[in-house]
């Protein structure tokens, strides 16, 4: 009983089933979400190879039904544009706008939330006032107004969606940072002499990330919906094909040829559903991370 006994450790746990990804894959709904999302990503990636021409060009007879002509498995619209090609190329635009817009609102939301939660006081009051301002304006009308003023293009639509959808995220990040800022985790860092930047970026934000990741997947879904709505109203980028725009174009023939609007509509539903399933799965997995065994 002399030296402090060297303590033996439990065996290392390298079980894939216990990692976040492993646990996510074991949930059927999250797995379905991931598979659907992977499908949409593949469509976007192979759009140029599968459909070489411009999806906005007339390709065949107008208003072909799905299956009517083997060259156009999903049929054509009233301008004779290939719907399958439109779905593939539209996946690109939808994912691009959804992803980048979510990224823009993540950067703004995390930045404002982190500053507000960490520094508190006057900084917090000022930033939260701005956040409230953004929360009180209905986001879709706000986006609509911005796009109308700026002229619709992929860049302006993305920016407008990003700028109008960060306020909820900022509040979420603020609450998490506030909690962690007063935790022993942050206090231990202060005692070691760590700078604010180190405490925020290396300890607080990584630990506040779980709910942010969950809401990011919902943000992408919402951005895709918003872009579709804008395109449906004719405020999409006229130079590219998008799912919302396709629904809009199919509106005129909805009584005679409902498939023209329905097919891109189904694509939107599947994309949004996939992102929501993924978000729910991530929420379950990340929030129960503490309870192991």
């Amino acid at each position: 009983m002399a030296l402090p006994e060297t303590v033996s450790l439990p065996p290392a746990r390298a079980d894939f089933r216990d990692t976040t990804v492993g646990r996510l894959l074991r949930r059927p709904s999250a797995l379905l979400g991931l598979l659907l999302l992977a499908g949409i990503l593949a469509m976007a990636a192979f759009a140029d190879i599968a459909f070489t021409g411009d999806p906005l060009d007339m390709a065949g007879m107008p208003l072909l039904r799905p299956g009517e002509d083997a060259a156009f498995p999903l049929g054509t619209d009233m301008m004779g544009r290939d719907l399958a090609s439109g779905i593939f190329h539209g996946a690109r635009v939808s994912l691009l706008i959804g992803g980048v817009a979510a990224l823009v609102s993540l950067v703004i939301g995390i930045g404002i939330g982190a500053l507000s939660g960490y520094y508190g006081g006057r900084v917090d009051r000022a930033l939260m006032r701005v956040t409230e301002l953004f929360q009180t304006i209905p986001p879709f009308l706000f986006t609509l107004a911005l796009v109308a003023i700026l002229q619709p293009s992929i860049a302006t639509i993305t920016a407008a969606i990003g700028i109008t959808s960060w306020s909820g995220l900022a509040r979420l990040v603020r609450a998490e940072v506030l909690r962690l800022r007063n935790s022993e985790l942050a206090q231990a860092s202060i005692i070691l002499g760590a700078s604010d930047a180190r405490i925020i970026f290396r300890h607080i934000l990584p630990n506040a990330l779980a709910p942010v990741i969950v809401s990011a997947s919902i943000l992408v879904a919402t951005a895709i919906l918003t872009e579709s709505s804008l395109s449906f109203l004719g405020l999409g980028d006229p130079n590219v094909v998008s799912w919302g725009g396709m629904v809009g174009a199919g509106r005129e023939t909805i009584r005679t040829d409902p498939h023209v609007a329905a097919i891109p509509g189904v694509a939107i539903v599947i994309a949004v559903l996939a992102l929501n399933l993924l978000g729910d799965g991530l929420n379950d997995v990340l929030s129960s991370k503490g309870e192991r065994r």
Partner: peptide, 12 residues
């Protein structure tokens, strides 16, 4: 006096 230690930990 040194305190007596019980080495190791309770088995899982």
């Amino acid at each position: 006096e040194r305190l007596a230690e019980i080495p190791g930990t309770v088995p899982a």
